[in-house]
Computed example of a mutant assay.
Amino acid sequence: MKILKTLSILEGSSLLLLLFLAVPLKRMLDMPEAVSIIGPIHGVLFIAFNLALIIAVGKSQLKASYGLIGFIASLIPFGSFVFKAKLLNQTPDSSL
């Protein structure tokens, strides 16, 4: 569960960097390099976070409903932070 908590913070942070730093730099200052760097990093973290959710649900370390909520939260700015604070901190830590 520790990895899932860490990934939720990293994924949420990368989404915020993408939306509130890289995209404005690209659109307003014509700097597409920011999206070219942060975009793939966010993509990898997004996939890793959702794979960790699937693994946790598969190992019965996380309820399936929590897994679905986690996936939806990963699509929403600040959602991963709320997911970690509200749901992941209520579940006991394990080796995930």
Rank of each mutant, 00 (worst) to 15 (best):
M1E: 08
M1V: 11
K2D: 12
K2G: 07
K2W: 10
I3P: 00
L4H: 10
L4P: 09
L4E: 10
L4Q: 09
T6E: 03
L7K: 04
S8L: 03
S8I: 06
S8M: 04
I9L: 14
E11Q: 14
G12I: 04
G12L: 05
G12V: 05
S13C: 14
S13H: 03
S13N: 02
S13L: 15
L15K: 12
L16D: 02
L16F: 13
L16G: 03
L18A: 05
L18M: 12
L18N: 05
L18W: 05
L18I: 05
L19C: 10
F20Y: 14
L21C: 10
A22S: 12
V23E: 09
P24Y: 09
P24W: 08
L25E: 13
L25Y: 12
K26Y: 11
R27I: 07
L29D: 11
D30S: 14
D30F: 10
M31Q: 14
P32C: 06
P32H: 09
P32K: 09
E33T: 12
E33H: 04
A34V: 01
V35L: 07
V35F: 05
V35K: 05
S36V: 00
S36M: 07
I37Q: 02
I37P: 00
G39E: 08
I41K: 08
G43Q: 09
V44N: 00
V44T: 09
V44E: 00
V44H: 01
L45W: 06
L45T: 08
F46S: 02
A48R: 03
A48I: 06
A48W: 07
F49D: 06
N50V: 11
N50A: 08
N50L: 12
N50F: 10
L51T: 07
A52N: 02
A52W: 04
A52M: 11
I54G: 10
I55A: 12
A56R: 01
A56C: 02
A56S: 15
A56T: 10
V57A: 09
V57F: 02
K59M: 07
K59A: 05
K59T: 10
S60D: 11
S60F: 00
Q61K: 07
Q61S: 06
L62W: 01
L62V: 02
A64M: 11
A64E: 05
A64N: 03
S65H: 00
Y66W: 11
Y66P: 01
Y66D: 15
G67P: 08
G67Y: 03
L68D: 00
L68M: 12
L68T: 11
L68Q: 02
G70H: 04
F71S: 03
I72T: 06
I72C: 03
I72S: 00
I72R: 01
I72K: 00
A73F: 04
A73K: 06
A73Q: 04
S74V: 08
L75A: 14
I76P: 13
I76W: 10
P77R: 07
G79K: 05
S80A: 14
S80V: 04
S80L: 13
F83T: 09
F83E: 09
K84Q: 15
K84F: 13
A85C: 00
A85Y: 11
A85K: 14
K86P: 04
L87P: 00
L87S: 02
N89F: 08
Q90N: 13
T91Y: 11
T91A: 14
T91H: 12
P92R: 13
P92V: 12
D93M: 12
S94A: 14
S95I: 13
S95G: 09
S95N: 13
L96K: 04
